[in-house]
Design a protein around this nucleic acid. Sequence first.
DNA 1: GAAGATCGTTGCGCTAGCGCAAATGAGGAT
DNA 2: ATCCTCATTTGCGCTAGCGCAACGATCTTC
Lengths: 231, 231
Amino acid sequence: MSSVDHQLLRQCAYFAGMPEAILQTAAASAHSRRILGGEFFFQQGDHASHFYVLIEGNARLSQITPEGRQIIMGLLRPVHEIGIIAAIDGSRYPLDLQATQDSVALAWDQAALRALLEAEPILALRALRMVSARFVELQERYRELATERVERRLARAVLRLVAQVGQPSSDGITIGLPLARQDLAELTGTTLFTVSRTLSAWEEAGIIRSARERVTLCDAVRLQAIAEDLP
Amino acid sequence: MSSVDHQLLRQCAYFAGMPEAILQTAAASAHSRRILGGEFFFQQGDHASHFYVLIEGNARLSQITPEGRQIIMGLLRPVHEIGIIAAIDGSRYPLDLQATQDSVALAWDQAALRALLEAEPILALRALRMVSARFVELQERYRELATERVERRLARAVLRLVAQVGQPSSDGITIGLPLARQDLAELTGTTLFTVSRTLSAWEEAGIIRSARERVTLCDAVRLQAIAEDLP
DNA sequence: GAAGATCGTTGCGCTAGCGCAAATGAGGAT
DNA sequence: ATCCTCATTTGCGCTAGCGCAACGATCTTC
């Protein structure tokens, strides 16, 4: 149990706006955990032991099918909460959380989490809101996957990433995350080949610029047009 | 506010095993709402007003895309809770709930729900567990949609329906729900043509029998083999 | 029981996207 | 610099599944 800067907690939706006292209590029962790039915070099937808040680095939330095909459920950057669903009832993690760079997270073990939720019922309600919000987002993505073509799904994924982790650069906004074609494929439910072809076409058309593990959005308006139904 | 048989509540996961007193409190603040087949409990975008527990009839939970294509997120039979996600923070319903037969549901308005959750913190925790469980299920379906072929998804959908609402019949287990090809298509993210062809093939092979809006599973083992990766 | 409305089937052509293979390019390490 | 590794690109062939259209079956209504 190291001491933890509880101001950090304010930066995640879960703790944002909570009274100082609660933040201190929460921070006091957390410890921090450092994970090297490539290592796992947890893996699918592990006994759910902790609720995490990622405060440094970044991580990939993914699922792997019995046949070995992987899909990415999310790419996380600080400050982000993760694992509450599994930690809340001590089941097993339904997916992997892998650090894609050296990362640090605050961690609450089950007992600490339970104590926290019981001491501060408002935190349980917040958790419910948070999980609900994610549920609705996932439902959205599900619908997208069921009804939209690859190009549109890809366009949306890029726009989402730009919005989340975009960094202004010379002639556009660059996704501030090493992002291989394979990653985009696993994020949108397609193959790396199709992603490569689509990005090439977009680059040809001047909508993006791309390099190894890097994508820069140049013409947001046109990409938006692809993402929606605009002609 | 009509009086409501609170024993009914025991039959849904959300209230199962709760002390008598809580059930009575809960039932006291509910009223019942009757909806004719084809009508809507609520529609996508409606201001979220109520948390429901379906106690009679059945209903379809669906989403409709801007282009007018529909997808089914779930088929509900009594006793089932629905709408807690939207009702909890008074946003808008993210999907439609349509009665597919004349149906009755208990309903709690937002104030009643909030009062209930505050009076009985355990109910908030339960809600969190319930939403979490649904989240994990949805994640599963998402992965399926992203990685599996139509035939396998369809096999899983049929197996799930048989497990949920199967009724033993002369030579197999019949899905106890009027279920058009179109419904199965919207449930698995494909088209009614592909569903029809696939079911025909299965019928040919003696795995199922099908009729208008009705499917009977005859050979569960073989369908299971299709649903998994067994040769 | 005849007409009309729904729902289901099936043939046919088509295309989006898959998957392989081979070539190219870009970094990193020694 | 040079080698090695790994991401990416692109041509090519292929197929799962889509979507239309025409037809057939079944239920409903008057």
